[in-house]
Amino acid sequence: MEQQTLTSHSYLTFRLGDETFAASVNHVLEILELSKITKVPRAPHFMRGVINLRGNVLPVIDTRIKFGLDKADDTVNTCILVMNLESEKQKIMLGALVDAVQEVREIEQSSIQPAPSIGSKYRSEFIEGMVKVNDQFVMILNLALVFTTDEVSIIQETAEEKISIA
């Protein structure tokens, strides 16, 4: 598995606004249709709420807000990516709202170009690199960095609180 990851990785591409992002399938557990999201009080503003995933509470983050994009209405294509994020301390699952899921694509590591440090509207540390697919740049996200531990833990806590309250 390590070997393979060196040469090529499978990435799930999705859209946020006009941009296409890619995330390693290793962090993606599954893709869910948008279902009812229960709002959680006192949650961070980027957290939409929680959903019930086969009995488990899954916090859902509004990625657009997280990425500093404009808020947009949900569509039929809006999906929840169920991600499994591993940090040094803990292993957490959370859902990320994306505008549309596109496909699972294998991307050569060599074709990945480093992200420019200046001029991007996204924080560059979130982006592992950029790859050109079909004349379009796809930003490969570092999911572990995107959702910081603190934030994630807060989310976790909030979710747990919610559950305990519930």
Partner: peptide, 8 residues
Amino acid sequence: LNAAVEAA
């Protein structure tokens, strides 16, 4: 997609 993710 899910299947593809699983397969990947």
